[in-house]
């Protein structure tokens, strides 16, 4: 199986889905001639032409709105927000329109739309290019929220998202783009939305994470194995719909839970996961549910030492796991 990068998995998925289904098209800022600022859509305009690879104005509300209209018309748009930070002007379209079309039309209409957005820090992007925005949408029924951490999952989940009949927000951690590589099959496959995956089996502490921090957790687990601490790691992969069954199963493995995400602590999705555990797995718990998240500060600092302080890393996670293991 060829080893490819996280961003190559995005490109491959788009390429293959556009070939498979002529209704699929991409739109966004610089997705065409430039091939995307991160080069995620590279080669698409050459392959499919500017009718299916649309360079749009710098108007995220329009990108989302046009995509929603096209989806309602029967197309399969894949809209790109150049940075997740820029999604804010499109929130009204996404929350009030895309999420509610099926409900509002009593199931007559649907909105088979994918919005891709690179999120997260650790790339010296500072305030406007580092935000994690998932918590803005996790509480909005009608949206699916996918946040893969490996190239295999990126490709399989993006394909599932494009084939889904409802709006999917597809958040890609931009630090993972060229950092994370993995084996991806050449032949067509999909990964189902709404299914978490155990990335490592363990018996002492369960870590639940997604995105970049999932890799940090795996590194921490590797380190801690040498200290005799056995860590169970669950990759949520999809936040909404949450794979409760997998979460509860993972909790039952150890009774000690650490939830890790880069999005800040307060109001972050970890709180929802913790609530589900507290409600449905109380008698499995052997320790208080712990969260390790980004700090509750307004923005990612530009100063490198401060950015490092903001970002999670394997050491911080290892420390939190160790504390739980000792409890």
């Amino acid at each position: 199986m060829p080893v490819i990068s996280y961003i190559d998995a995005v490109t491959q998925a788009l390429m293959e889905e556009m070939k498979r289904d002529p209704r699929v098209f991409v739109l966004g800022e610089d997705v065409g001639v430039r091939g995307g600022v991160f080069r995620a859509t590279v080669g698409l305009i050459e392959e499919f032409g500017e009718d299916r690879v649309l360079d749009t104005p710098l108007t995220e509300s329009a990108i989302a709105g046009v995509a929603i209209g096209a989806a309602a018309y029967g197309m399969r748009p894949v809209a790109e927000m150049q940075f997740a930070d820029f999604i804010m002007p499109a929130v009204n379209q996404i929350v009030s329109e895309a999420a509610k079309i099926r409900y509002r039309s009593n199931g007559t209409w649907s909105c088979p739309l994918v919005i891709r957005a690179p999120y997260g820090g650790g790339v010296h992007g500072a305030l406007y290019h580092s935000q994690s925005v998932e918590k803005i949408f996790t509480g909005v029924p009608g949206l699916k929220i996918v946040m893969p951490s490996t190239p295999y999952d990126v490709k399989g989940l993006l394909k599932s998202a494009i084939r889904d009949e409802d709006p999917v927000l597809f958040f890609e951690h931009k630090r993972c783009y060229r950092l994370i590589k993995g084996e991806v099959p050449v032949e067509d496959y999909t990964v189902p939305i709404g299914k978490a995956e155990v990335k490592r089996e363990g018996t002492d502490v369960t870590v639940i994470s997604y995105g970049l921090t999932l890799h940090f957790a795996l590194q921490a687990a590797e380190q801690l194995a040498k200290e005799g601490i056995s860590v169970h790691v669950l990759d949520l992969r999809t936040l909404i719909p949450l794979d409760k069954e997998a979460v509860l199963e993972a909790v039952a493995k150890t009774g000690k839970v650490l939830i890790v995400h880069e999005d800040n602590l307060t109001g972050g999705f970890g709180g929802e996961v913790a609530a589900v555990i507290a409600e449905e797995a109380f008698f499995e718990l052997d320790a208080p549910i712990k969260r390790l998240c980004g700090p509750d500060v307004p923005a990612m600092p530009y100063s490198p030492p401060l950015e490092k302080e903001f970002m999670l890393n394997p050491e911080k996670i290892a420390k939190a796991i160790r504390e739980l293991a000792e409890f």
């Binding site: 109380f282 008698f283 499995e284 718990l285 052997d286 320790a287």
Partner: peptide
Amino acid sequence: AGETSMKARYSPAVLR
């Protein structure tokens, strides 16, 4: 003193 301070603090999992 802390060595046994948590001896009688049972978690839900332990009690069950």
